[in-house]
Design a protein around this nucleic acid. Sequence first.
DNA 1: AACGCAAGTCAACGACATTGACAATTGGAT
DNA 2: ATCCAATTGTCAATGTCGTTGACTTGCGTT
Lengths: 248, 248
Amino acid sequence: MSTPSRDRKSRTASKQDRPGRTRRARDSLSRQVILDAAETIAARDGLDGLTFQALGKELTAHPTSIYRHFRDKDELVLELIDNLRSRSYGGQLEATDSWRDDLRSLAYHIHEHYLRYPQFALQMAARTTRRPTEFTNVEFALDAFLRAGLPPHDAAIFLRVFGNVIRSLSSMEAGLHALEAETRERDALAWHLEYRRLAPEEYPRIASMSDQLTDIGDPRVFDTAIELFLDAIEVRARKADGEGGQGT
Amino acid sequence: MSTPSRDRKSRTASKQDRPGRTRRARDSLSRQVILDAAETIAARDGLDGLTFQALGKELTAHPTSIYRHFRDKDELVLELIDNLRSRSYGGQLEATDSWRDDLRSLAYHIHEHYLRYPQFALQMAARTTRRPTEFTNVEFALDAFLRAGLPPHDAAIFLRVFGNVIRSLSSMEAGLHALEAETRERDALAWHLEYRRLAPEEYPRIASMSDQLTDIGDPRVFDTAIELFLDAIEVRARKADGEGGQGT
DNA sequence: AACGCAAGTCAACGACATTGACAATTGGAT
DNA sequence: ATCCAATTGTCAATGTCGTTGACTTGCGTT
């Protein structure tokens, strides 16, 4: 056999040996087509499964075709995240006459979004996108804080606290869900066993309450955290209102 | 990146950049020696820089030597995390007569630990290690909650809420710090500019307070979150105490 | 009809984790 | 003291990944 480096480019033969594997039609790829395929893969195999080779297979195209449309993988992933976010909560929020209900509703919207796309949670939590969806949410929350009676200065910082708590808690919970089911169950089981086995002399409080302790993924945690925050905000708002109104 | 073409070519004798150091002495490697090297690398180059090849170079050993001491990379990383944690806050916590101070102190201990090792923050937040350091912290916090006057059932769930909020917020903040400084500054700058530029008719609340808005990495966020939580716990404890004690 | 150029393809590269075979060193049994 | 087998370090090889540069193909313009 001669060197196969040059004569491998047989014109029609190599194309026809796999009838299904023809070259993709020109302009049949686009950012949107690729993003859709990426979402399919990520939803099915997780973020780790989202490789260029997997994309190539999903699209029936050569893996490196994607480089004609995205500079690198990071650009693709960021675009995908933005795509999902805008699809998940776009303009579904309407203010009621209860700031508490509004904030709670916003919190659950975001929480739900994170749990829907656990693969991306970690990346979503720490980045601001500065896009319409984000602006709308900020405006909505800010309005609720002001209606609660907080002075603007407090509203500004509480907005961030509230938002960060929601996103970081959701992200963490989503991160857990993203683990393999088997690993997670094994962890939870080991957790219960080991905490029950601790010496009561050394850890009296743990021992006395071991039945009531709950593991890290307990869904009540998020609900409780939100209610605690709303309580705290209410207290502060009342206090500020009293001071501002000089004893009204 | 320059191509290090010189150090891989050594077949037989040219390995002797260091004469006499053909092979590491027997038993000169151990879990602890490897973990120390791993910490050095991670602190210097980040968690992404922690590869077996880097480890090999740091130890002047063959990269695969590590497999004699750790089953795989995950085991190494988890062990490293546990190592750092126990070194960072081991038995420095002492209960005072103020449950509020105690919980605050615990929160800051953990927060500081996360900021000290931002590379590991993401992995630390979501995993329970079930090790002495963790047990001690849980016992400490549980005791504080009970002293605050919470009924055991509430203490159990609040323990988780408090812990998850601390860890997830710290993790997120650390994640920001772990980004390259350049990227982070560019992001913060863009954030301020874009929020100031928004149309007042569409986002009146944002426009009216644009000067007071703060970015995602504001260090006051953590402090405020903790104080809000402590407030909320105090309210709940008073309520529970009043109900349980039938009017004090 | 010819051609330029964008879009798809392909092989190759270097970095990565992991594996199985191999070599050197050690301590214990003889 | 000597041998042996287990332990520990080494090395080549495998298969994955993202990314690059050279190539081919065919559409739109001329």
